[in-house]
């Protein structure tokens, strides 16, 4: 589904990613762990297409197409979703309106008719109940004055509603209390299937206790330095990044 080859990325002439390669197949959940400044979030922004990240070398193919040739909205409509570490607050735009607009943008891209209002409402009700999201919050402006946990749940709600092929969770666990973490993890597990894939970016093992990854990668100084299965995350928790990054 996603193949990154020898990716070198710089920002303002500072090299951040230094030849990173990663392959994610359908049905797989990959965890990318690394210390601060190792390039985790840069990778997520590059994948989603954010401006100001210079691709110096390398390639990224998504569903056998060159991802780097696509605009941000095109990537999203083709099935790539980034759950933000710091979701944006949008005053004046109601949460449910934003969601419906996003779903209909994707349906338009796929030459499908707009989603019926009733169908949308039903689907929104079911998923938001699963995520313990207060229905009142959906009437409020998107992410405005939401707590940290509410914002992260909102990202998972969008993920579930937009039904992407590849979801990137950028430190979704940061700022979550234990209950919220469990709710978010349950949401991810419910959505997880053999048809989609996840790249979970995190500092800690705790989210991976709930969402068991098939592969764990350690990133340090712009490159993947170690890969393994879930046991690598446990080992990392015990030994710390400094030791594991030098393995």
């Amino acid at each position: 589904m996603l193949e990154i080859k020898d990716l070198k990325v710089s920002v303002d002439q500072k090299k951040i990613l230094k030849g990173l390669s990663l392959k994610i197949n359908k049905g797989e959940v990959h965890a990318l762990m690394g210390p601060n400044g190792s390039g985790k979030s840069t990778l997520s922004y590059v994948l989603s297409g954010k401006d100001n990240y210079n691709i110096d070398e390398g390639s990224i193919s998504f569903k056998n197409e060159n991802l780097l040739n696509m605009d941000v909205d095109e990537r999203a409509n083709k099935g790539l979703f980034l759950a933000f570490q710091y979701p944006m607050e949008i005053p004046g735009v109601q949460t449910s309106f934003f969601l419906r607009t996003a779903i209909n943008a994707k349906r338009k891209f796929l030459n499908l008719p707009e989603l019926d209002a009733l169908e949308f409402a039903k689907s929104l009700k079911t998923i938001s109940e699963d995520l313990s999201i207060d229905p009142e919050i959906l009437k409020r402006d998107l992410n405005l004055n939401y707590s940290g946990g509410e914002k992260k749940k909102q990202e998972i709600l969008q993920l579930s509603m937009l039904n992407p092929d590849l979801a990137i969770l950028d430190e979704t666990d940061s700022g979550l209390d234990i209950d919220a973490l469990r709710v978010v993890a349950d949401g991810v597990n419910k959505f997880r299937s053999s048809d989609n894939a996840f790249l979970i970016i995190t500092h800690y093992q705790r989210l991976l206790d709930y969402v068991k990854p098939d592969f764990v990668h350690i990133i340090a100084d712009g490159n993947i330095v170690n890969s393994g299965d879930y046991s690598l995350a446990i080992e990392l928790e015990e030994k710390g990044y400094e030791k594991m990054a030098n393995v």
Partner: peptide, 29 residues
């Protein structure tokens, strides 16, 4: 705000539609 625009784009909403929504949001008050 370019970051807001990026957020809309990352949800599949193109910039033209996003700017229209943001203009409406601006005068909603």
């Amino acid at each position: 705000d370019n970051d807001l625009l990026y957020y809309f784009n990352s949800r599949g909403i193109n910039s033209e539609l996003a700017i229209n929504i943001l203009k409406k949001a601006f005068i909603k008050e």
